[in-house]
Design a binder for these strands. Structure first.
Lengths: 219, 219
DNA sequence: CGCACCTAGGGTACTGAGTACCAGACGAGC
DNA sequence: GCTCGTCTGGTACTCAGTACCCTAGGTGCG
């Protein structure tokens, strides 16, 4: 009924919020200010975003749904890889946001309330990861291992994302692969690993055997 | 000047808060209610605790200081073990609280605002761990590895603490040792490990070689 | 002794986030 | 035309958190 000429109210509120937070600072901006600049009423703000903090964050619900679907589609044996792919979905989302993500990062690093809020959002992903991993594993320490891997995946993702946001990382997906290699090594459970020495008898010389093994390992 | 007969105001406020939160629920308890039951003014509440949430949490500052001291005292080579010991300090603190810790756990699991607050507290420990680990390490991935280990230590600690709070774990320190073994395995960097196949020539039969190797491995 | 200073508490008034409730505008469908 | 659902605006309220000023007690010092 009002001027929908430019963009829907929800988007205009986000634009207004980012602009005002950057101009005047988070604490010196009221929800009234945001609503006024967006050309809507205060009520409309709270209808779209549950709190003043929420307006600068992406809609986690959609991402969480996509990730849950990805995890459910994974085979039990590759659930750890699926979790990594889920983290990649999140990373791609942030990278796809571009400047908006960088703007949010600047705000988060300077406003404690927003930092707390971001953490609360991340916990949802971590919980989802841990839950699905625990469901697929069935050893005695499944719960513990699931939580460790979930924490690792989130930490690795954050490390890479922060690097990209700061401009230190130019290829975030490659950096994610590298970071996740540490986490996956833990996930595959090298902890209780046993090493066996296999002895076989052959007429070939040591050099011949070494060559054969090397070729076999190299395919 | 007022009735200091029983306990100092700060403690009375904590008692009042826990009691009221349990009786009426967190949302249906106002700061005025808490102050009134503690027999102090509202101003006094905010003088001691920065927010309504803060009143049920332990003073992290003291713990963080002790932990920082413990970490600074550690040798570079054993910094990862020192982080584990730091986590043990925190665990002991909570276990030492006894029922109070269980009361808090009940509140945290049911009140989102308190959950967020707890997470914000944990981040401080995780940041401290990651920072000290990063300082002591100097390889290319030091920052990443430090964050992964810090996240793992916190996750392991939380897993054990939750188990104890729920009554599933009776010996939390032993459980911590066990959980930390997973984290430390990652910290010691098994990641870039290479496996070599050693081929040697011998006149002995496969059975003899296997026996010899087995005896050597068993000392 | 008197004075300055510090600490712990109390009271009042204000801002602003978040909630509840009601009312109007619009489009779709019957 | 009428109704239903959806989006919106406005008003009034609660309550957390802040700012400011006040009082009572204890302590050190000249």
């Amino acid at each position: 009924m009002t001027t929908d000429a430019v963009a829907p109210a929800a988007e205009r509120l986000v634009e207004a919020a980012f602009a005002l937070f950057e101009e005047r600072g988070y604490d010196d901006t009221t929800v009234d200010d945001i609503a006024a600049r967006a050309g809507v009423g205060r009520t409309t703000f709270f209808r779209h975003y549950g709190s003043k903090e929420a307006v600068i964050f992406p809609a986690h619900d959609g991402l969480l749904d996509r990730i849950a679907a990805r995890l459910d589609a994974a085979a039990t044996a590759t659930i750890d890889l699926a979790v990594v792919e889920a983290a990649r979905i999140v990373l791609r989302h942030y990278v796809g946001e571009g400047d908006r993500a960088r703007q949010r990062y600047r705000l988060i690093t300077s406003v404690p309330a927003l930092r707390d809020r971001e953490l609360a959002g991340q916990r949802q992903y971590q919980r989802l990861f841990a839950g699905r991993l625990r469901d697929r594993w069935d050893d005695a320490d499944a719960g513990l291992r699931a939580e460790l891997v979930a924490a690792g995946v989130v930490a690795a993702h954050n490390h890479v994302l922060r690097g990209w946001l700061r401009g230190d990382v130019t290829d975030p997906e490659a950096a994610l692969d590298h970071a996740m290699s540490y986490v996956l090594a833990q996930a595959t459970g090298d902890v209780e690993t046993t090493t066996s020495v296999v002895v076989v008898q052959s007429r070939r010389s040591a050099a011949e055997v070494a060559d054969t093994v090397r070729r076999a390992l190299e395919h």
